[in-house]
Simulated assay, not measured.
Amino acid sequence: MRRMLICGLAALGWASELGAQPVPARDLLEFPLGAIFEPPALAGEPGAGLWNPATLALPTGERYRIGVASLAAGTSQGADGQLLSGAMRRASGTTVGLSVARAAVGGLVRTDSDPQSVGTIPYHTMLVSLGVAREVVPHVTAGTAVRWRSGRADQRTGDALAADFGAVLHDLPWRNARVALSSFLWRPGREIEDRPAVLVAADLRVAGSDRTREVRVGYTESAVNRGARDRGLFASGRLDRLEARAAFVRGAAGSGTVSRFRSGLALHYARYVVGIAREEGISGLGPVYQFTLSSLIK
């Protein structure tokens, strides 16, 4: 844990010394890439620790985990995102992970003095995260991540370092409850320019006896500084190999609000987990679809 804190504090120092210019395309990371199926603060599939570094931790008996996620919005603008992740549990019990995420909007047309197109406008961002996590005391897992993000909006480009901390209280005595809290894209002293987020989620078991046969309900909330704020309820159920989830989330950005419904199915087979999820109700974007695949190696 001491090494985790040293890494995180060092990254905070580097991030705070970088320029104050905001990195373009920050809003693309308000899409729940890899986290439509699960609340971001608790998202473990495909196991990237992207939204909460603490969820990176692998349990005892597992050595490696790799995962991919793909997100696409069915609109003419072609919004999409991809995530590739990998994690390794060391003999000390610490898990080390690396993830690469990319999000972009295509089909943005450049015009001149008339409506005729004269080209397209690039609008995309990439996020590379290196994280560590471990169980620090029984029922408490903590993690930290160093992140590098680059972005481009037309001719404007930029990049920055950030550092995040997260924790998950898990397997609590009362109904196997879980509580998770994390920061996302935190740059100390640059909160206005790069708009970090705070993520929180909690759930508990309302039926069943173990994680392969259970029903859970919970609450999720995320708030981006000077950006979108989402909150809502979710439920999940698993019966052996099949898992289903649903969530109703209400978001606010500026003076407007929008309600969104998320649903998904996942199949657990041997050491693989395959999932598909859908989010609908985003104004002007239509449904967003997500596909995930992860594999555990013991």
Score class of each variant (00 low, 15 high):
163 A>N: 00
129 S>K: 08
184 F>R: 09
117 S>M: 04
178 R>M: 09
195 R>G: 04
100 V>L: 10
189 G>N: 10
105 V>L: 06
167 A>M: 15
126 M>A: 14
210 D>I: 00
117 S>H: 03
155 Q>E: 14
143 G>W: 05
159 D>A: 12
111 T>I: 14
127 L>F: 04
181 L>C: 09
124 H>Q: 12
210 D>K: 01
172 L>R: 06
150 S>N: 12
147 R>N: 15
147 R>E: 10
111 T>D: 06
198 V>R: 09
155 Q>R: 15
188 P>V: 09
193 E>W: 04
162 A>S: 13
157 T>W: 04
156 R>A: 15
121 I>W: 07
142 A>K: 02
149 R>G: 13
111 T>Q: 14
102 R>M: 08
150 S>W: 11
207 A>C: 01
156 R>N: 12
138 P>L: 13
154 D>S: 15
191 E>T: 14
134 R>P: 00
168 V>N: 07
158 G>I: 06
196 P>A: 08
136 V>T: 14
155 Q>H: 12
99 S>L: 00
102 R>W: 09
144 T>F: 13
109 V>G: 03
205 R>C: 01
196 P>G: 07
124 H>A: 12
202 A>S: 14
153 A>W: 06
102 R>F: 07
118 V>H: 07
187 R>D: 00
205 R>V: 01
107 G>F: 07
188 P>K: 08
197 A>T: 12
171 D>E: 15
151 G>V: 06
210 D>Q: 06
161 L>I: 11
113 S>W: 10
186 W>D: 02
119 G>A: 08
198 V>S: 11
114 D>V: 15
139 H>M: 14
193 E>D: 15
191 E>G: 09
164 D>R: 02
130 L>T: 09
114 D>C: 10
110 R>H: 01
160 A>I: 11
100 V>Q: 01
100 V>F: 07
154 D>M: 11
199 L>R: 04
211 R>I: 08
175 R>S: 07
107 G>K: 09
123 Y>R: 04
135 E>L: 05
161 L>H: 13
153 A>N: 13
99 S>V: 01
153 A>Q: 09
142 A>Q: 13
204 L>R: 05
182 S>W: 11
198 V>D: 02
187 R>M: 06
200 V>T: 14
209 S>E: 14
131 G>N: 04
128 V>G: 04
134 R>A: 12
117 S>C: 03
153 A>C: 07
136 V>S: 11
113 S>V: 10
181 L>W: 12
113 S>D: 13
170 H>K: 14
211 R>K: 10
143 G>K: 04
111 T>F: 02
158 G>H: 05
197 A>K: 06
199 L>A: 07
166 G>C: 08
182 S>F: 11
118 V>Q: 11
100 V>T: 00
174 W>I: 07
144 T>I: 13
159 D>K: 03
170 H>Y: 12
129 S>E: 11
123 Y>W: 06
186 W>K: 02
139 H>V: 09
111 T>C: 03
120 T>K: 13
133 A>P: 09
106 G>S: 12
166 G>A: 07
196 P>M: 08
159 D>W: 02
124 H>Y: 13
178 R>S: 14
175 R>Q: 13
182 S>C: 12
146 V>G: 01
150 S>I: 02
146 V>D: 02
179 V>K: 04
166 G>S: 08
182 S>A: 15
108 L>C: 02
200 V>D: 05
112 D>T: 10
113 S>I: 10
174 W>M: 08
155 Q>I: 12
140 V>E: 04
145 A>R: 05
177 A>N: 01
145 A>G: 04
211 R>S: 10
